[in-house]
Simulated assay, not measured.
Amino acid sequence: MHIEDETWTDLETTDTNLGLLPIGSTEQHGPHAPLGTDTFDAEVIAQNAAEEYSDSVIVAPSVPVGIAEEHREFTGTLWTDEMTFRQYVRDIVRSLASHGWDHVVIVNGHGGNIPALEAVTAQIIRHDNAYAVPFTWFEAIGEHTSSMGHAGPIETSLLERTRPESVHTDRLTDAAAGASDRWGDWQGSVNLAVDSTEFTENGVVGDPREASAELGAELLTAATDELCSLLDAVRSHDAAPRE
C-alpha cells in the first residue's frame, strides 16, 4: 500500500506496524542507464516485497537524492551532505511512526548512502519511538554481490528486467569501452580516489554488456526474498527508545 496513492481515511484503517522507505540517488549511471537508476531499483524491490509479503506493509514515497558527491563531475548528478540526509531520513521515519508504522525497513539503492543509513538507524533505535534498519538490495543477492560495480551488469540487468525501455542498449559497447574494472584507485588497502572521474572515464564500473533480463529476474527474486525475511524479523522488535 503506497501512501501517496491512498486517502488518509483509508490509511487510518490499516492494521500494520510495518513500513518500507525506498531511498536512492540521482546520479550518473554511464551513457546507457538513467540517473534515477538507484531510486528505481529501490522502489521496485520495495514494491515487490510489499506485494509478496504475507501481511500488509506501508510503502512511503521514495527519497530520490542521497550522498552522491563522488559523481559531481557528471552532468545531472544531485547530492546532499550527510547530516542533512540523516536528519531528513530520521524525520520521515518519525512521521511514519507517529501513525503507527513504527517498524521501518529503509530499502536502499545507493552505496554512498550506506554509512549514513547505518548511523541514523542506530540513532532512531536508541532515541526515537521507532525501530528502523537499512536494507541495501545489492548486498542481498548472494554471489552476485561481488559483481556489483556501478552501472555494470548487476544494475543494468535489474533495469532490463523492470524498466527495459530506460536502458540504451545501443550504447553498451561504448559504455564498456570507457569503464573501469574496479571501483576506486587503490594502493594496497587504501582507496586514493575521492571522485569517480579519477578511475572511470564514463562513470561505469564493470561490463554492462554482460547484463540480461534473465539475470535481472534472478536478482529481483533474491532481493525480494531477503527483504521479506527481514520484515519478519523486524516486525516483532521493541520500538521503544533505549535511552
Rank of each mutant, 00 (worst) to 15 (best):
H2D: 13
H2G: 11
I3Q: 07
I3M: 05
E4D: 08
T9D: 14
T13V: 11
G19F: 04
P22D: 08
S25N: 04
E27D: 07
Q28W: 09
Q28K: 10
G30V: 06
P31E: 04
H32A: 01
H32R: 05
P34M: 03
E43I: 12
A46G: 06
A46E: 03
Q47P: 13
N48A: 15
A49K: 07
E51C: 14
S54N: 11
S54L: 11
D55I: 15
S56P: 13
V57W: 00
I58R: 00
V59E: 01
V63Y: 10
V63S: 08
V65N: 00
G66T: 03
A68Y: 01
A68N: 01
A68Q: 03
E69C: 12
R72E: 15
T75I: 13
G76A: 02
G76T: 02
W79T: 15
T80N: 07
M83D: 15
Q87F: 13
R90W: 13
I92L: 07
R94K: 02
L96H: 02
S98L: 10
H99R: 12
D102V: 04
V105C: 05
H110R: 07
N113W: 03
P115T: 07
E118W: 09
I125P: 11
R126M: 09
H127S: 13
N129K: 15
N129Q: 09
A130K: 02
P134H: 01
F135V: 05
T136Q: 01
F138K: 00
E139Q: 14
A140N: 13
E143A: 07
S146H: 13
G149L: 01
G152W: 10
S157C: 04
S157R: 03
T162M: 15
S166D: 11
S166N: 13
H168L: 04
T173M: 09
D174R: 06
D174L: 12
A176F: 08
A176G: 09
A177R: 06
A177P: 02
G178H: 11
D185Q: 14
D185P: 05
W186F: 02
L192E: 09
S196F: 14
S196Y: 06
F199M: 05
N202R: 00
V205E: 08
R209K: 00
A213N: 00
A213I: 03
L215W: 08
L220A: 07
L220K: 05
T221V: 15
A223F: 05
T224P: 02
E226L: 12
E226G: 10
C228Y: 06
S229G: 14
L230W: 06
L231H: 00
A240L: 14
A240K: 10
P241K: 07
E243D: 11
